[in-house]
Amino acid sequence: MTSLIDVDAAMRDMVEKLKLLCAERNIDKPALVGIHTGGVWVARRLQSLLGWDGPVGELDISFYRDDFTRIGLNPKVKASSLPFETEGRDVVLVDDVIMSGRTIRAAMNELFDFGRPASILLVALMDVGGRDLPIQPDVVGASRRLESNQRVKLLGPDPLAVELREKTGSS
């Protein structure tokens, strides 16, 4: 399968932008936190490219979604794991694809339940537009506009590839 974007090139680009941004803001050794599942893969890849050490945090935002009263519980919910103190820490929040911004809102709410971070930077491998909320990533690997019936999905963890999917029917 051919990937919609060149993931390796996008990753290298993100690493450079993130390094610059951290230097600009005097952020040293931030904590990387990925959002399940694709965001965790991207965060791990970033970490090895950056050469940072320490564990990568994992957030499953199922308990924080704003659509529980419409669609119910995600049956494949996983435990979140932040094996480090986030109180007062600079956090780099990582997701694979940003669209409505609702996932990021939920993830930030969950992060704050673990402690008050000093700052949060948002990194996304792909920005596909279609925002419902005033949330913008600080670092983006690639941007694409999608048709209303199109969605993208990150396949991984190794190799990482972005698949374009066309929605069929009314769902």
């Binding site: 308990f63 519980l73 919910v77 979140s80 673990f114």
Partner: peptide
Amino acid sequence: TADTFIEVGSRSIKKVPL
């Protein structure tokens, strides 16, 4: 699902908005 809630019970804020 209960396993994931055990993690919630070990946080300092033991509450989710579900």
